[in-house]
Amino acid sequence: MMAKKREKLLEVKGLKTYFFTENGVVKAVDGVDFDVYKGETLGLVGESGCGKSVTAFSIMRLLDYPGKTVGGRVVFEGENLLEKSEDGMRKIRGKDIAMIFQEPMTSLNPVFTIGYQISEALKIHLHMNDREAMAKSVELLKKVGIPIPEQRVHEYPHQLSGGMRQRAMIAMAMSCDPTLLIADEPTTALDVTIQAQILELMKALLQEFNASLIMITHDLGVIAEIANRVAVMYAGKIVEYSDINTIFHFPLHPYTFGLLTSIPRLDVELKRLDAIPGFVPDPLHFPKGCKFNPRCRFATDKCREEEPPLVKVEEGHLVRCWHVDRVKEEVKNGLLVGV
């Protein structure tokens, strides 16, 4: 799915966010580069602790001590967000860039009504008065499929179900017509039938608003459903970066490869799960060389010594691995035979 005329909306370059803890420096995000084009959805996928959420928080500049972005650039519509003043940042958050969080119960304020919380951004960014903002809130709630919005707008978060709260949060995110949406595991806490509702809703809204989305998730199924391009993260770095078809059919990083062959899935009958051995390394004690090497069956001495760079294998396909050729040999005929 190649976008028509690709116009860059966001450019993240060499982003480094470290946590200065008592036990040492945790390099949660350690040199991350990616672009988001207008109207596209970029999937950011990885396991817990790989740095995908920290990346999002760094873009929004929402990190607190001991976390600090120590390097890189985040260029949004031509401006480096990392150099902006807090005031300037506040003008962007919730207006041009909006965020949807995983747990709407903890990210909505329990003591204010849904309507009040949606109105807040409308009043600040679009200078609406109370009545206009309330009317617009009702309209937004209707748009995200909340029944009887005139009544719901006066209710508190605890009066809504999990799926409805997530809809309300999406309404809030879309309120000021953002050009970039960042969703951090927005469906992870939801039941599967509700997840389907929310994904369908997000797809429809993205199209309607022509907004870009960074979708952060650990669920490769969700990625396959919504993303145009994907960045796979492992231990604070992007290890593979390409369009959606390549990632799922011709992955070239052993970690991506391993993730795809290890998960149980509905579309293929699997005899045995090809599990990745070992566990995600402790960020205070990352292995030397390639961070994936202790779990990698392609690993050689070189991998244990020297960290590979993220290199272009083909146009639009970047991989961080010394042994791309050997992996290529294995996936030559496509990862999934018989699909």
Binding site: D191, A196, Q197, G221, A224, L266, D267
Partner: peptide
């Protein structure tokens, strides 16, 4: 039927008819 159709499948080519249920449990 709806439950099975709601599961996201890690394959961008996998086409299926999704039954989206209305309302909550």
């Amino acid at each position: 039927q709806a439950l099975i159709s709601a599961v996201p499948v890690p394959n961008p080519d996998y086409k299926k008819k999704r039954i989206v249920l209305q309302g909550d449990v």
